[in-house]
């Protein structure tokens, strides 16, 4: 009831202010679809969060938070989910209920509370060391309609891109290999690099990979498990 009243008040303010509505808080019903556009990369559980513009899940050029690092290195979105919920965000956690395979889509709905007027999306990309898809504080439009956004691949800058089997735990080297990827990730690579060239969040330079599934420098397949941006398509339907 409180929300309804305050929404009615907001509409009055909007009508008075005519078109000077940018940035005003409002609630909305959103249907969000995330499609994996890649040929051979999997997305780990996706976090879709409508939150206040005062917060953000990641910032290009800045050091990753420990919560972002856990998501980017191991696909663990619980830290980001908890942190955003503490800020009264409206979240959709893990809409695909596990991995979102190449070219697959997942759709979920959320009603946003007033003040949660930007949308962020993250999910780790496998097989990578700390690569993730990212949408950073996209302003949710007030006008009902269907909006399309293309996402780039980012590197959290927290782990060396050695591209060999290892751990998904924050701070531990190597890529996690959950069971569905067991047969598509190679073995016995010696490692592409042991250093982090840029320790802030940046556009991912891409996988190198190799054509040797049982050795070489990388456990990544160089013809399939690579990508060019964009890597994901987000479709947002605003009704309300």
């Amino acid at each position: 009831m409180l929300r309804f009243n305050s929404k009615g008040f907001r509409k009055t303010v909007l009508a008075t202010a005519l078109f000077a509505s940018a940035g005003l808080a409002h609630s909305a019903d959103l249907e969000v679809t995330v499609q994996n556009l890649t040929q051979g990369i999997y997305f780990t559980p996706i976090l879709i969060s409508a939150h206040s513009n005062d917060a953000s899940l990641f910032e290009l050029g800045e050091t990753a938070s420990v919560e972002l690092q856990a998501m980017a290195e191991g696909g663990d979105i619980s830290g980001l989910a908890t942190a955003t919920e503490a800020l009264s965000a409206n979240n959709i956690a893990n809409p695909a209920e596990g991995l979102l395979g190449p070219a697959m889509s997942t759709t979920a709905s959320v009603t946003t509370d007033e003040g949660n007027d930007v949308l962020s999306i993250v999910a780790m990309m496998l097989p990578t060391n700390d690569g993730f898809i990212g949408l950073d504080n996209w302003a949710i439009p007030e006008a009902p309609g269907t909006y399309t956004i293309y996402l780039n691949a980012y590197d959290a800058g927290t782990e060396a891109n050695d591209e060999i089997r290892g751990s998904g735990a924050p701070g531990e080297a190597g890529l996690p290999v959950p069971p569905p990827l067991e047969d598509v990730v190679g073995n016995n690579g010696v490692g592409v690099t042991a250093t982090v060239a840029n320790d802030s969040v940046h556009i991912h330079p891409g996988n190198i990979g190799d054509d040797d599934a049982t050795g070489g420098v990388s456990d990544v397949d160089n013809t399939v498990q690579r990508w060019l941006n964009p890597v994901a398509k987000v479709t947002v339907v605003v009704s309300e």
């Binding site: 190449p102 070219a103 891409g206 190198i208």
Partner: peptide
């Protein structure tokens, strides 16, 4: 191949490590 349309992952090239 896998028989679905996707974004292209790019060219690897011989120097890039694709022996074929």
């Amino acid at each position: 191949a896998h028989d679905f349309v996707s974004m292209h992952p790019g060219i690897v090239s011989a120097e890039g490590g694709l022996s074929s």
